[in-house]
Computed example of a mutant assay.
Amino acid sequence: MILIDADACPVKAEIIDIAIRYDVQAIFVAGSYLRLPEHPLVRLFVAGDGFDAADDAIAEVAQPGTVTVTADILLAERVLKAGGAALDPRGQEFTETSIGDTVATRDLMAELRPGMMGQSGGQSSGPAPYSQRDRALFKVGLDRVLNRLKRPTGA
């Protein structure tokens, strides 16, 4: 099963294509209604607009064998603790080894950001625009994770 933190996910179409190819359920979890293609493997779960409602819904069902697509580092950490796999929309897999450093970097940047904005007088430019290369890298990353999960244990 693929769980998608769907509200700001830029790779919805790629996830649907891969889910159909692998014959895997794709559940898009969002705060409100999203228009998705009708297909038996594609579902929408509207978690509501409460703070972290979508994250909480995903974390509740994440388990070994599930893959979560999210840019939210703290959600990725929760998914990993539940035994699931987590991947960002650029194809980078969060791992038990990397998540601690990733969370620490996120926290450090959150602390530095207000001071940096005061010094520069403006806002940061944010992440780079999402490109076709990013889409391709995501597809490779999701393929890699799904192939690893479908292998028999011990193989």
Rank of each mutant, 00 (worst) to 15 (best):
M1N: 00
M1K: 02
I2L: 13
D5F: 03
D5Q: 04
A6D: 03
D7A: 00
P10S: 05
P10H: 05
V11T: 00
K12H: 10
E14P: 09
D17S: 13
I18F: 01
I18H: 01
I18R: 05
A19T: 06
Y22T: 05
Y22S: 10
D23T: 13
V24P: 01
Q25T: 10
Q25H: 04
F28G: 03
A30Q: 03
S32C: 04
Y33C: 06
L34M: 15
L34R: 07
L34W: 04
L34K: 12
R35T: 04
R35P: 01
E38I: 00
H39C: 07
P40D: 09
P40A: 09
P40N: 04
R43L: 11
F45E: 09
V46S: 00
V46L: 00
A47N: 06
D49M: 15
D49G: 15
G50K: 15
A53M: 11
A53E: 12
A54T: 12
A54Y: 13
D55N: 11
D56F: 14
D56G: 12
D56Q: 11
D56V: 12
I58A: 02
V61E: 07
G65R: 13
V67M: 10
V67S: 04
V67C: 11
V67G: 10
V67N: 05
V69L: 05
T70P: 04
D72H: 02
I73F: 05
A76T: 10
E77T: 14
E77L: 12
E77I: 03
E77A: 10
R78Y: 08
R78P: 05
L80Y: 12
K81G: 02
G84Y: 03
A85H: 07
A85Y: 07
A86S: 11
L87P: 00
D88E: 11
D88A: 08
G91C: 06
Q92A: 07
Q92H: 13
F94V: 03
T95M: 08
T95E: 01
T97Y: 14
T97M: 02
I99N: 06
T102H: 10
V103M: 07
V103N: 11
V103R: 13
A104R: 08
A104H: 08
T105Y: 08
R106G: 06
R106Y: 08
R106A: 06
D107N: 14
D107C: 03
L108H: 08
L108E: 04
L108R: 14
A110P: 02
E111T: 06
E111L: 10
P114N: 12
G115I: 06
M116E: 11
M117A: 14
G118N: 11
G118T: 07
G121F: 15
G122L: 00
S124C: 01
G126V: 01
A128Y: 02
P129R: 12
Y130M: 07
S131G: 13
Q132I: 05
R135P: 08
L137W: 06
V140Q: 13
V140L: 15
L142N: 08
D143T: 11
L146S: 08
N147W: 03
N147S: 11
L149Y: 07
R151I: 07
P152W: 09
T153M: 06
T153I: 10
G154S: 05
G154L: 03
